[in-house]
Design a binder for these strands. Structure first.
Lengths: 196, 196
DNA sequence: TGCGAAGCGGAACGGTGCTCCGTATATTGG
DNA sequence: CCAATATACGGAGCACCGTTCCGCTTCGCA
């Protein structure tokens, strides 16, 4: 497994100041490039935006995909934390609103959903990161609903998470496709009594 | 638009015999390569399997994506025709069974679902071909169900088709993902009364 | 202030899809 | 049956991708 992004490892021997500066510049530049060009911005564009050489990317991130992971890591944390905002509604309301935020997140970052489930080399770590951070959240929301009998219990959180992510694909490639409607439809199916 | 695959255009001035032979060899070789390697088999592999040069591919198909379209075209026809086999069941049964065949088709061809909804250049024609051939079929099935009041009427066939296709993504990249369960869940949502 | 180690830039490599051009061959008029 | 010509061919070459290599620069500490 490629993983092992710098940000992950606890404080090792402190890095040189220029190295720390460049790493942050790369994260900022990559975020900007992903917004402007999409997730598939080239490493040359990112390096150029950051004002560093190409090799500097690879000194800080094992691979292009790991840079993508690093850029979205803290946004992923925010998304994971956003499940607590279940202010007053039913567990099902909480689930619905969090799923909505999840979808917004994926749709807003052009190409993220596509990359997440792509079979292209290197993106397994992106997938793994999403699963690690978000699956527990979705699972908890789902179990709350199940306790209240609001959803059927034969649906696995993992399947649901990938399905929702998949439904976001194409949202900005095909303007006529209404991904959020389809996510609603999926959630409707979740609340139906239909047994095994 | 790139389209304009040779097979589409009606009989123009008859081509040379070796040209016809090579075109068929390319279609066969590509089909074999897609099974063995996946949709992302390289043009060099396909040319090599067909025993022709690389340029010969581009003499017959404007782009690699158009070759993919051509390979799946007749299989698409078979799939479109498969909707008539609604032997005795309800319209909803017919819908379910056809959707099942659609999903099998996408999942079996490794990488097809991914390519279908990818934003990568050139695959718009693949998307268009699927929509042209299959959307009318799905729409008819859906309207039959609606006549019987078996499905809600506020769901567009186009959205449903893309959604089902999307749910197939990752079926062979992530072995734990049960795409068919999620398609069932979506269809369950479709049969629920929930209005707008 | 000097010096080793850590970090750097950009040329270079192997891999794509696609194009160009000199060569070979199928077809057809004599 | 044989030339002459349009048509088709093969593979080297191009531009672009992610990634690696290596000689040079800069940081940080004694």
């Amino acid at each position: 497994m490629p993983g092992k992004t710098p940000a992950t490892s606890g404080a090792g021997p402190r890095k040189r100041s220029d190295a720390r500066r460049n790493e942050q510049a790369l994260l900022d530049a990559a975020a900007a490039a992903f917004v402007a060009t999409g997730i598939d911005a080239t490493v040359r564009e990112i390096a150029s935006r950051a004002g560093v050489g190409i090799a500097t990317i690879y000194r800080h991130f094992p691979t292009r995909a790991d840079l993508v992971v690093a850029v979205f890591r803290h946004q992923l944390d925010a998304l994971a934390a956003a499940s607590d905002g279940a202010d007053g509604g039913t567990p099902l309301d909480a689930l619905r609103s969090w799923v909505g935020r999840f979808a917004d997140f994926l749709i807003t970052k052009h190409g993220l959903a596509e990359a997440l489930h792509s079979d292209q080399a290197g993106f397994e770590s992106l997938h793994a990161e999403f699963v690690d951070r978000l699956l527990p959240v979705l699972d908890a929301l789902l179990q709350d609903c199940a306790k209240n009998g609001q959803v059927r219990e034969d649906v696995r959180a993992y399947d649901l998470m990938l399905a929702i992510g998949n439904l976001c694909i194409g949202a900005d490639t095909f303007p006529d496709y209404r991904s959020r409607d389809m996510i609603d439809l999926l959630l409707t199916g979740l609340t139906a009594p239909g047994g095994h």
